[in-house]
Design a protein around this nucleic acid. Structure first.
Lengths: 353, 353
DNA sequence: CTGAAAGCGCTTACAG
DNA sequence: CTGAAAGCGCTTACAG
């Protein structure tokens, strides 16, 4: 089946190509009859307009690009589907572009953004290399591109320079809430599992660790470096394996008076739970445990893991709202939004008094 | 920063646009000096060729499209990243297109495939609507499009008509192996959790159920309809929630002599484990449990869940190989590949003699 | 090795 | 309401 062009369809219908174009694009300046006749023929002969040709002419398309860098986790996927829904309501198609960790430099991302003539762009997940200079460079270059964009991610690329709008969960207040919850249950020796490397200061783990520290401080509990468990898998911090390996490596020399652990995320919590079990420690009888994210994983684990639910649908809706507003009014002010999560009590925290 | 065109760059370099084009595309018919001079200027001024204009001229691009329909699960994502890697080795870019469940009709998919001028297309996950007629129609229409394609999915769209090449895990033999493993451990009353609806006969759950049945038959164990637990969440069969809800609903009236359960997948197994726990049954002391997929979820659960590891990297490599071969030789014969998974023994099966 | 020119398939003023 | 024409930014024979 050869690809049919607008020229051929025009000949078949006995009209000019411009008329076909108008009919196909639902413009008002065609007679209803012509419009229907053309559309019927298009259906009949399977005419599909060539998108490249269209994009070449049109200044911006009714498409929004969601660019995801690095690993595509469950959370990212869920936000994505909420975004698709929100944009569809406003008549926009959504396209997903995935940039692998190694191609995550300014050039690639810039090309993606410029190429598509998108109505707008959402950045989802973490961007740029872990190298902070490269990240900063990317952010600056993106700011020079004349396409509305919003970051739906940890604010490491937006918080500092405020060059872009951003929406994300409030990692820090969430961790604060979780740790305060443990403290209220009587815990004072609480470890944090899954810290990353020093140069990654604005990453989610770092914000959560900061929340952990401020909760301790608020309760006048001294911070103990030995209770910060480094990630064994530095490149897969938010994974089950990292929770397992990090905890397993740390346990033999861990201070024996620890009564609770906060894992950097729910997946890691699962790994931590396994490591504890292998060491003969039961959750929550011997050790309490909390996660972060509010994934089904945590909700259906035995025991149900206390966690902080990411407000994914609100994050997505908020991102969509900000982006659409920026598209309507490009000179609109930059906006930084942090959305608070919600504590989900499970069965993994034991009260000790 | 305005978008620079090939015309402007040509003027800057004092050459013709055709020369710039040749230099940018690394063609042999440019002098090395001109080539370098043009490329340096392109870098310097941030010239990015307009992809739409390029595609409009070029017959097929060095890009392969991976089209995913419905939910983007962990498995799909992993196969995707393996595919990206394999195609990159052969010099192809990979682009991901996601079609939501509701847009999964022939028209949308056909448009995606035709529009891109892709070198080839991989279909990942399940395609078409659950309506079998629509699916069949989609398959036929796709077969008429002149683009190399391969299905990396359950063979429901390929097995029957053999219009397309397909690669997938051998669900049936995998389930056979898992259930035989249970039988060897002394189990005879084994339930299957997570069956779908009748009209979905070639879906993964159905193939796994078929494997379950043949394992029973091979051991001369009579099939008992009451041990097939229907999915509570028909639209999210392969989910934790479905495992939980289905099991919970079934347990009160379940035959009391059941000693083992096979869940339709690892995620469902997790939900099943929770439902069992809430009913006061321990795994594996009171009831053995196996999953399917070989996800980290299962490997790090307490107890580690016995499962069948999907050979994701082999599936992806095989799919890439078949597609690339078809691209080189479009008249190449259709090929159906089923790859066997590997049994991963966990701690969730108890020997009963 | 280089340039001038045609043309890929559309959209959109412009004229009627 | 419709058509003829220009042009979006590229690539690629064709001629030199």
């Amino acid at each position: 089946m050869a690809e049919m062009t607008i020229r051929e369809l025009a000949d078949i219908c006995g009209v000019a190509v411009s008329t076909v174009s108008r009919a196909m694009n639902d413009r008002s300046d065609v007679s209803p009859e012509t419009r229907e006749r053309v559309r019927a023929a298009a259906r009949r002969y399977g005419y599909i307009p060539n998108a490249s040709a269209r994009r070449l002419k049109i200044s911006t398309t009714q498409t929004i690009s969601v660019i995801v860098q690095g690993e595509l986790g469950q959370l990212v996927i869920e936000v994505l589907s909420h975004l698709e829904e929100a944009f569809a309501e406003s008549g926009y198609d959504t396209t997903l572009q995935h940039v692998s960790e190694e191609h995550a430099h300014a050039g690639t991302v810039e090309r993606l953004v410029r190429e598509g003539k998108y109505g707008g762009v959402v950045f989802l997940g973490r961007y740029g290399s872990s190298d902070r200079d490269l990240s900063a460079q990317l952010i600056r270059r993106l700011a020079e591109i004349d396409v509305p964009m919003v970051f739906c991610t940890t604010p490491d690329y937006s918080g500092a320079d405020s060059l872009h709008s951003s929406i994300s969960v409030d990692d820090q207040s969430g961790a604060f809430e979780l740790v305060s919850h443990l403290i209220e249950a009587g815990h004072r020796r609480i470890a944090f599992v899954g810290a990353g490397s020093e140069r990654d200061r604005e990453h989610a783990w770092a914000l959560r660790l900061a929340g952990y520290r401020s909760a301790l401080a608020a309760a006048s509990i001294p911070f103990d470096e030995r209770l910060v468990v480094p990630s064994a898998e530095e490149h897969h911090i938010y994974s089950i394996v990292n929770g397992y390996e990090s905890t397993k490596r740390w346990l033999p020399d861990a201070p024996t008076d620890v009564t609770a652990l906060m894992a950097v995320c729910d997946a890691a919590a699962l790994g931590t739970a396994r490591a504890l079990s292998e060491a003969g420690k039961r959750v929550p009888e011997d050790c309490s445990l909390v996660g972060f994210d509010g994934m089904d994983l945590a909700k259906y684990y035995v025991p149900r893991i206390t966690t902080l639910a990411q407000p994914l649908s609100e994050i997505a809706q908020s991102a969509a709202r900000v982006l659409l507003a920026t598209m309507r009014n490009p000179s609109r002010a930059i906006e930084q939004v942090w959305i608070r999560g919600r504590l989900l009590e499970g069965e993994s925290v034991r009260r000790i008094d």
